[in-house]
Amino acid sequence: EESVKIVRLVKNKEPLGATIRRDEHSGAVVVARIMRGGAADRSGLVHVGDELREVNGIAVLHKRPDEISQILAQSQGSITLKIIPATQE
């Protein structure tokens, strides 16, 4: 059973501070990098390897990473992410 986590981040004009990529094996959209000091890093709630399912209620599974980045870039104020946390080894 996948544990889905709802994360709310507050982002002003600054970038979210995370990059995403598509996992070639599973097809999932995952967090590739977290930039120090960005909104994602400061929240402490988003981690490399987390699978991104939704951004502000928009399912991202069938979107290209550049489309998802665009949605994230255009979002201001509160951003709600639905993520499946990376499995902690």
Rank of each mutant, 00 (worst) to 15 (best):
Q88D: 12
V31R: 01
L52M: 03
R42A: 08
S43W: 02
I84F: 07
V29W: 15
I20P: 00
A18R: 00
N12Y: 11
A32C: 11
V4D: 09
I58L: 09
R53H: 08
P85Y: 02
G44H: 05
E67I: 05
S26A: 05
G27T: 04
S69G: 11
D66H: 12
G27K: 09
T87P: 12
E24M: 11
T80H: 08
K13G: 15
R22I: 14
R22F: 09
V46C: 03
K82Q: 06
G57I: 00
R53C: 11
L72I: 14
L81W: 02
E67W: 06
S26M: 04
M35F: 14
E89H: 13
V10S: 11
V46G: 01
I68H: 01
I83Y: 05
L72G: 03
R22V: 14
T87G: 12
A86K: 13
D66I: 09
L72D: 03
V55W: 02
I84D: 05
L81Y: 00
G77V: 05
K13R: 13
T87S: 13
E54P: 00
T80M: 10
I68W: 05
H25E: 13
G37F: 04
L52V: 13
Q76E: 15
G27D: 06
E54T: 04
A39G: 04
L81P: 04
Q88G: 13
L9S: 05
V60I: 10
I68R: 00
L9G: 05
E89Y: 10
S26D: 06
E89T: 10
I83C: 05
A40N: 00
D41E: 11
G77H: 10
R21V: 14
D41S: 06
D66V: 10
E24Y: 08
K63E: 05
Q88T: 12
R64N: 15
I84W: 06
A40C: 11
Q70T: 13
Q70H: 11
T87Y: 10
S26L: 05
V29D: 03
E67H: 06
E51T: 07
D41C: 07
V46N: 01
V60D: 02
L16W: 14
D66N: 12
A28K: 15
R21P: 00
S3T: 09
N12Q: 09
R21G: 11
R22Q: 10
G57R: 02
R21A: 15
G27S: 06
K63Y: 08
A59V: 09
L52N: 01
D23M: 08
H62C: 07
I79G: 03
E89M: 10
G38P: 00
L81H: 04
I34D: 02
R36E: 14
E89F: 08
K82G: 11
A18H: 00
S3Y: 13
H62S: 12
K11S: 13
T80C: 08
G44A: 05
T80Q: 08
T19G: 06
A18L: 15
I83Q: 03
R21H: 10
V10C: 11
K13V: 07
V29Q: 09
I84G: 05
G27C: 03
P85N: 06
A59L: 08
A39R: 07
N56E: 06
R36F: 04
S43K: 02
I71L: 13
A39F: 11
E89V: 11
I6M: 03
T87A: 12
E67V: 07
A86T: 10
P65V: 15
I71T: 07
R21Q: 12
R8V: 10
R36I: 06
K13Q: 12
E24F: 07
I68Q: 02
K5I: 15
T19W: 11
S75P: 09
R21W: 07
T80Y: 08
A59C: 14
D41T: 01
I83L: 12
R36S: 12
L81I: 07
R33S: 15
S69D: 15
G49H: 04
L61N: 13
L72Q: 02
L45G: 08
A86G: 13
A86S: 12
R33E: 15
L61E: 15
G44Q: 07
H25G: 12
R22A: 08
G37Q: 04
L72Y: 04
A32P: 01
I71R: 05
V31Y: 01
R42Y: 04
G57V: 00
L61Q: 15
S78R: 10
A40I: 14
T87L: 12
R8A: 06
S69L: 10
R33H: 12
I68E: 02
K13A: 11
V10K: 13
A28D: 04
L81E: 03
E51I: 09
R8F: 04
H47E: 06
A32E: 14
S75W: 07
R33W: 08
L45M: 12
E67N: 03
M35A: 14
G27W: 01
D23N: 08
T19F: 11
S69K: 12
E67P: 01
Q76H: 13
E67T: 06
E67G: 01
I68V: 11
S26R: 08
L72K: 02
S78T: 14
P85L: 01
V55I: 14
I79T: 09
R64Y: 06
L52W: 03
A18F: 15
T19Q: 12
R36Y: 05
A86I: 09
I84R: 11
G38C: 06
E51F: 05
G57Q: 04
V31A: 02
L45H: 08
E51Y: 05
L72A: 06
I79C: 10
A32S: 13
A18S: 01
E54G: 03
V30D: 03
I71H: 06
A59I: 08
G44D: 06
L45Q: 15
A39Y: 09
I71V: 08
D41H: 11
L45Y: 05
A86E: 05
T19K: 09
G38K: 04
G49D: 05
G57Y: 00
S43T: 07
L16H: 02
A39I: 13
R21S: 11
P85C: 06
G77D: 14
L9M: 09
E24T: 12
I20G: 00
A28R: 15
D66S: 12
D50P: 00
G77A: 08
V7A: 07
V10M: 11
V46W: 00
G57P: 00
I58M: 12
L72F: 13
H25M: 13
V4L: 08
A18C: 15
A59T: 13
A18D: 00
G77C: 06
D23Y: 04
E24V: 11
I79A: 07
I34S: 01
I79R: 03
H25F: 10
L81D: 04
G27V: 00
R53K: 14
T19L: 12
I71G: 04
P85V: 04
K63S: 07
K13N: 13
R33A: 13
E67Y: 07
M35W: 12
G49K: 03
I79L: 12
G27P: 03
I71F: 07
V4Q: 13
N12W: 10
Q70D: 12
V30L: 11
I83G: 03
D66C: 10
G44Y: 00
I68C: 02
I58Y: 07
K13W: 08
G77E: 11
L9E: 05
S75N: 10
I58V: 14
R8D: 06
V30C: 08
E89L: 10
D23S: 08
I83V: 11
V31G: 00
K82V: 02
G57D: 08
S43A: 06
A28E: 06
H25N: 12
V46Y: 02
D41Q: 08
T19Y: 14
I71Y: 08
A59Y: 04
E51G: 02
I34E: 02
V30M: 10
G49V: 00
R33F: 05
G37M: 04
I34H: 01
G49M: 03
A86D: 07
V48P: 07
L81S: 04
R22C: 14
R22W: 10
S3P: 15
G37A: 03
A32M: 05
K63R: 10
V4I: 13
R33Y: 09
E89S: 14
A18E: 03
Q76W: 07
R64V: 04
S43Q: 05
Q70M: 10
G77Q: 10
G44K: 08
T80P: 04
I58C: 10
S43L: 04
K13L: 11
K13H: 14
P85K: 11
K11R: 11
I6W: 15
I71S: 05
A59F: 05
V48M: 05
I79D: 04
N56K: 02
K63D: 03
L81M: 13
K63N: 05
R33L: 03
E51R: 06
D66T: 09
I20Y: 06
